[in-house]
Nucleic acid binder design. Structure first.
Lengths: 146, 146
DNA sequence: AGCTAATTGCAATATTGTTGCATTTAGCCT
DNA sequence: AGGCTAAATGCAACAATATTGCAATTAGCT
């Protein structure tokens, strides 16, 4: 929810401005990654104008607060749908339809941290991107998965 | 090894050209992510010139063959050090010194795939980036990990 | 050595990202 | 409600990164 993000924003002492609300709304409505200029374009179709610099700065902020993430596969930004206190984000990207889902699993997360620890690496955050086929696309076109 | 990459390259019917060999060598020597222009700069200091377009195209190719990866954290490219047949790449990035290590673990990889499967997602590849502190930096400056 | 498709370099252009500074505004305080 | 101030935005200019079409070159064949 946008409301949740706004709460986090304010809890960290940041102002709730119109541009920030607009960017959050656009991200919320789109489950696919968007570039800063994508966001600007979407807003323009609604008669709202935001300078691209503002969008860049807003996205920076959201990423720092772990409210958004930049996807590796596309370079676009996506709003995190899950509480991020664990510092672990796991996205599944469908190669066919492009849909993205975010998942959390404390156990798996812990296992990954333990794994890293075995190599002497102290993990702060981790980010995983799975690419493959969502259940719908897999059912429709199983040959794609070959 | 560069030799291994060359073998994969050729096995896929691509030519082994001087530019490709140079890019592979530079990536191999650097354990940190490099941008296309970084690579161009490094080569220039050795009196070798490659057009940036060529470097972009070479990196595209290497990524498609899973011989290199683009890192999320920096946007730079890094050569994969491990056999990539499993389609699973796990990088640990030290927030302090920037060093990157790649790890493979079939079991953990399998667990991750199973996890996705529980949500009906059929995984083809996955890529994880851990950010934190390598053992050296953690030992030297444990307060950083707070 | 010669052939040919693949690859490279070049030039031009498009896209994406950054910086400094003047103007505006959210949130606070009367 | 009106005023204050630090934070945030917009603007302009610029810097860095990425893409495209096409002519010249070259790797890997016979």
């Amino acid at each position: 929810m946008v409301q949740d993000s706004i709460r986090v924003l304010q809890a960290h002492g940041h102002k709730l401005t119109k541009p920030r609300r607009l960017v959050l709304e656009v991200l919320e409505e789109n489950e696919k990654p968007l570039s800063p200029y994508d966001i600007q374009g979407i807003l323009r179709t609604r008669g709202k104008y935001l300078n691209h610099v503002t969008i860049y700065r807003t996205l920076d902020l959201l990423c720092n607060l772990n409210l958004a993430h930049r996807m590796l596969s596309s370079g676009g930004f996506i709003k995190c749908s899950l509480d991020s206190t664990e510092g672990c984000h796991r996205f599944m990207v469908c190669q066919n339809c492009g849909a993205i889902q975010e998942f959390a699993d404390k156990e798996l997360c812990q296992e990954e941290n333990d794994f890293a620890q075995n190599f002497g690496f102290h993990t702060e955050h981790h980010l995983s991107e799975f690419s493959g086929f969502c259940s719908q696309c897999y059912r429709k076109q199983p040959q794609l998965a070959e």
